[in-house]
Structure formats: structure tokens, C-alpha cells
């Protein structure tokens, strides 16, 4: 068995939406291994997004424990956690979430800029990543000038530019047509093979199941099935 990158035990998360309590996560236990592409699937509202938010240290949880790269994220303060995220995690969002004011290359360079990497070096590395996702000619174009598929490829380049150990993708293909979705998934699988990283992909899209090493099914805040 390969090395465990992330380890969650009995995670419970409840939202207080006004009067009502929503039990979004009701005891999730899951390990994520090195170099695996894990897919998280399940009906809408079952808690997939909530789970990856907790796992990446974006959302606090009530009970259970969550270790990422041997670090207990529950005990980190906000500053440490933020820095930890910047160092080790890459994100790909359904809505791309590129900064509209920045060109493709500046968007890709952002994680490096945040870490304080020199601009020249950041741009060189960003350019390499853009080449890797096949957008070498579009580095100076702003997001509004790119197609959805291209924007998501920029987002992938951004998620990977700082060589994170762990990549989290929430519905990376569901804003895209079938063909762009396939391109995005092939890029993601190729890159984790080359760079060696673990990836969780939340998805509804069963046409991309074939890229998964493992598929975890969730329902009502619980894991119901793990399929290989």
C-alpha cells in the first residue's frame, strides 16, 4: 500500500442555517493515498463540497480529526493554516475563479506571487505550466477572452504551478462541454503522474469516472461505498 497523504476520522460538520440545523457531514472517515486520483460522487447536497472544504482547511469542523501531510489541521491557527494551504494544496473550482483583472500568465503565477517568489521566476514557471496545459499562445489574454475550457486549463496550471502535494477539484468539468471536460481530465491525470501528487475530484459527471483510481460514494453526509 502506498503512503497516506490525508487521513480523516469521524468528521462531523453541522451548519446552522437560521432555525434549522443541517448535518452536512455525519462522521466521515477516509484516507487519501499518495499519487492517487480519488473521485467523490453522490447526489446534490450530500456534503461533497463541505467535505473537501474541511479537508483543505477552508472550513472548521466540530469533531473528528483530520491530518494532512502528517499535520493536524484542527490545531493550526488561521495564519499557519493559510500558509500551509498556500504551500501544499492546489484548487480547481467549478466556476474557475480566475481573477478577471489578471492575464492568464499572472493568474497562473498567483500562488507563487502570494508566496513572495520573484516576479521573473514566477513568470517563467507560470509560462512552463501554461505550456504544459497547451496555452502557450494565450498567456497575455484575460479570462474574459478565454473559452470555459481554456479558463479551466488556466485554473489547472494555477493549481499546479507551486507543485502542491494535494490537489482538490470541485466539479472541474461540469461547466464544460464533453470534449473540454475530457481534455481537462487528461491533463490532470497526466500531470499527477508526472509530478506525483494526490487529487480529489468531486464530480457528478459519470463520463469521467474512468480516470479515477478510487470512487467514493456519499449520501446524506456519510460515505456509502468505496469502489476501486
Amino acid at each position: 500500500m502506498s503512503k497516506i497523504i490525508a487521513s480523516c476520522k469521524n468528521i462531523v460538520k453541522t451548519f446552522n442555517a437560521g432555525e434549522a440545523e443541517v448535518k452536512a457531514l455525519q462522521g466521515i472517515t477516509l484516507d487519501v493515498y499518495e499519487n492517487e486520483l480519488l473521485m467523490l460522487v453522490g447526489p446534490s447536497g450530500c456534503g461533497k463540497t463541505t467535505f473537501v472544504s474541511v479537508l483543505s482547511g477552508l472550513l472548521h469542523f466540530e469533531s473528528g480529526s483530520c491530518k494532512l501531510l502528517q499535520k493536524d489541521i484542527a490545531t493550526m491557527d488561521d495564519v499557519t493554516l493559510t500558509a500551509f494551504r498556500g504551500e501544499n494544496i492546489g484548487f480547481v473550482f467549478q466556476a474557475f475563479n480566475l481573477l478577471p483583472s489578471l492575464s492568464a500568465i499572472d493568474n497562473v503565477a498567483l500562488p507563487l506571487t502570494i508566496k513572495g517568489v520573484q516576479r521573473a521566476e514566477a513568470l517563467t514557471r507560470a509560462q512552463e505550466m501554461l505550456n504544459a496545459v497547451g496555452l502557450n499562445a494565450k498567456e497575455h489574454i484575460k479570462p474574459s477572452g478565454l473559452s470555459g475550457g481554456e479558463q479551466q486549463r488556466v485554473a489547472i496550471a494555477r493549481a499546479l504551478v507551486h507543485n502542491p502535494k494535494f490537489i482538490i477539484c470541485d466539479e472541474p468539468t461540469s461547466s464544460l462541454d464533453h470534449k473540454s471536460g475530457q481534455i481537462v481530465m487528461e491533463l490532470l491525470t497526466k500531470i499527477i503522474q508526472e509530478k506525483g501528487a494526490s487529487m480529489i475530484v468531486v464530480t457528478h459527471d459519470n463520463r469521467i469516472y474512468k480516470y479515477a483510481n478510487r470512487i467514493v460514494h456519499m449520501e446524506d453526509g456519510k460515505i456509502t461505498k468505496v469502489a476501486l
Binding site: 483543505s56 477552508l58 488561521d78 495564519v79 493559510t82 500558509a83 500551509f84 494551504r85 498556500g86 504551500e87 484548487f91 473550482f93 475563479n97 481573477l99 478577471p100 498567483l110 500562488p111 502570494i114 508566496k115 494555477r158
Partner: peptide
């Protein structure tokens, strides 16, 4: 604020 949230998710500190 969305953009700041994205930056914070990517590791930008409150100070930044």
C-alpha cells in the same frame, strides 16, 4: 470579496 476569498484559499494571508 470573492476574489479575496480565492486568494485566501490559495494561501494569501490576512496581512497581504
Amino acid at each position: 470579496i470573492k476574489q479575496y476569498a480565492v486568494l485566501k484559499a490559495m494561501g494569501a494571508s490576512i496581512k497581504q
